[in-house]
């Protein structure tokens, strides 16, 4: 998925001279995860460069550049380090269009690796998507595979509004289904590891159907899509899996269609439970599908604690917990 992200940046930098890429260690080194490797060499240091360690500075200058007319793509080294930049995201990027009556806008993308599964402890594992989806004026995107990552990132860069682009780092180098004791599978052996050349955009706001099924709808995004697939396979439950891909805007039609068909819904995310994005999804399903529901909607999420280091696999909502919810919702 890293290559796909790099490819998207490369395609857009080549097509559009307004695209500039920056962040901590992003220039010469190519980022701590190497997502921007080679871009400085190819496009020069004024289009791909290192920044001081200041997330408020990174997002703040992106807003200024966007207002000028550039298309900045900023990297926050880990989503866990986004907080100093949060004011610039929430109070500035998200509202600039509204408060200036469209005179100024912030067509920026803020990329950030998120999620756990790498023994990163509480400061390299967080999934803060709900802190963004709660903010009007922002779009929030989270791919689960290389094919989508490239198409969604291109769409995000072409978007007129600020887009938060969350990259589940555990699937950077291969799909991860939550079975941490099994060997890592590379993307080359996964159908969605196939990334078309050149430019293609996946419109924001379209979920992808990952598995058709009749018994229950599973709503997931990011790493949890792969966990859902494993749980479905292991329990034999005939679930329909929707990969939401974009949380705001949200593909409510796809959700509604699926839940009305199955009558049951399980929602997954790695982030903490209380006020997580699952709460919004649950409300949407209840409002739209109440008369079709045959069981209470269930959520499987991270616990409401900081992400622990040593107890990582006790925390991560793996296939076993998801499987239990699938069975429970069928009995309910």
């Amino acid at each position: 998925m890293l290559e796909a992200i790099r490819d998207a940046l490369d395609v857009m930098m080549a097509r559009d001279p307004r695209v500039v890429v920056f962040g901590e260690d992003v220039g010469y080194f190519g980022g701590v995860f190497r997502a921007t490797e080679g871009l400085q060499r190819k496009y020069g240091p004024s289009r791909c460069f290192d920044t001081p360690i200041s997330e408020t500075g990174i997002v703040g200058v992106a807003v200024g550049m966007g207002a000028y007319g550039l298309r900045p793509v900023a990297e926050i080294q880990f989503a866990d380090y986004m907080y100093p930049g949060y004011d610039q995201i929430v109070s500035e990027a998200a509202r600039l269009r509204y408060r200036s009556a469209g005179e100024f806008t912030a067509p920026i993308v803020v990329r950030m690796p998120c999620g756990g599964g790498i023994f990163g402890g509480q400061t390299h594992s967080q999934s803060p998507e709900a802190l963004f989806t709660h903010v009007c004026g922002l779009k929030t995107v989270i791919p689960s595979n290389p094919h989508d990552a490239k198409g969604l990132l291109i769409a995000a860069i072409e978007d007129e509004d600020p887009v938060i682009f969350l990259e589940p780092k555990r699937v950077y180098n291969g799909p991860f289904n939550g079975h941490h004791d099994q060997p890592v599978v590379p993307w080359s052996r996964h159908p969605l590891g196939e990334v078309p050349d050149g430019h293609y955009a996946i419109p924001l706001g379209q979920a992808a159907l990952r598995r058709e099924g009749a018994a229950v709808t599973v709503l997931a995004y990011g790493t949890m899509v792969h966990v859902a697939e494993a749980a479905v396979e292991e329990t034999g439950v005939d679930a329909e899996i929707l990969d939401l891909r974009s949380l705001v805007p949200l593909d409510v039609e796809a959700i509604e269609r699926s839940v009305k068909k199955t009558g049951r819904c399980v929602i997954l995310h790695e982030a903490t439970r209380t006020s997580g994005f699952g709460a919004e999804l649950s409300a949407q399903v209840q409002e739209r599908c109440f008369h079709h529901l045959e069981a209470p909607i269930l959520r499987v999420t991270g616990w409401d604690t900081p992400y622990p280091h040593a107890q990582e696999w006790d925390y991560f909502p793996g296939p076993e917990r998801v499987g239990r919810a699938l069975r429970a919702v069928l009995e309910g």
Binding site: I53, D80, Y81, Y83, G120, G121, Q122, T123, H124, P306, P308, H309, A310, Q311
Partner: peptide, 22 residues
């Protein structure tokens, strides 16, 4: 087991809990 290695905290030794956030 909660905290990343090297982010010690030793109040008794006048060593405040190290944050991962710079």
């Amino acid at each position: 087991g909660r905290q990343l290695p090297v982010l010690y905290s030793v109040r008794e030794a006048g060593f405040f809990s190290v944050s991962g956030n710079l």
